[in-house]
Amino acid sequence: MDFTTITLKLLEGFLTTCEIFALTLVSALPLGLLIAFGSMSKFKPLKILVRGIVWIIRGTPLMLQIIVIYYVPGLVFHIGLLPRLIAVLVAFTINYACYFSEIYRAGIESISSGQYEAGKVLGMTKSQVFFKVVFVQVIKRIIPPMSNEIITLVKDTSLARVILVAEILKNAEDFVAWGLVYPLFYTGVFYLLFVGLLTIIFGKLEKRFAFVTEGSSAIKVRRKLSLKTKISTFIGSIMIVSAVAIAVIIGLICICL
């Protein structure tokens, strides 16, 4: 088994990883906002219901949720099994939407009531106040916690192997079964590269939203923000460089062996 074959095989798994990551992100981000609205609803039963669901989802392991969503429809209702990838995507989306919803809620509740009132007295509708005035400020505030959660998502995709979805770690483990251990460590390079890229993107995003929200002291914060962005870009580049270096070293070791 030469290095290229292994890399290709891992790359194939990595594509599945990326697929799970991207599709989960695209569906969980809007769903999370909906859940956030539900958990802030003035209609008590809805609020209690939504908070209950969030409690259950955050209170159980994601691995268990994947297993439940994959096996329960078949075992209990006898309607056959979902395709593996779909089951994984459903579990990931629900799980991450719940985590995102709490971040959204924190962001929305941190906006001062003055912003809502200013919009109101200017004759805006409720949805205009939210989307034209409040939402951008919310996004600015939630970028750091969101990036945290999204980076966790990159690595959580490895849980998909519990129902045998062939993501990168599963493929690497298959090599281990053949008696080849280093592909398992090699996967780390892929994760590092991916997270490094995300770190750079989030740094850029933060810079893009570098206006100061109401109540914070002006220009100082701005400088601090851009410095922070610089640092995160710097760390991101270091990570990428080191990941590439590790890849090269592993490659050399393989050739020598």
Binding site: S112, G114, K120, V121, M124, T125, K140
Partner: peptide, 24 residues
Amino acid sequence: KEKFLREKRLNFGLVFQSFHLFPQ
């Protein structure tokens, strides 16, 4: 109704003590 309230509000302008400008 919210709609009528909004129309009525437009008769008045309000300047707040702490400005409440839209920072973005």
